[in-house]
Amino acid sequence: MPLISSFLILIMLAAAAAALAFDDLLSSIIAAGLVSLTAAVLFYFLKAPDVAMTEAAIGAGLTTAIFVLALFKTERGKSE
């Protein structure tokens, strides 16, 4: 279990770094969604199923959707 969680944390950090590093905003947002998703799994490992559920539903799902919406309302919408 420690190994799995450590591995997940590594993925999470890599995704966070990628979210900052990507030039493309959509990729950035997806990477941030990945961070939330791994965080949700980690919450489950920490015996916090309620938080895991919230993070999955809101952090990974809704937030990403809102970001994408905002992105398409601003920069991506310009090219149309």
Binding site: D50, M53, T54, A57, I58, G61, L62, A65
Partner: peptide, 8 residues
């Protein structure tokens, strides 16, 4: 959580 799922 339930509210968030419904909103989704």
């Amino acid at each position: 959580q339930g509210g968030a799922v419904i909103a989704t």
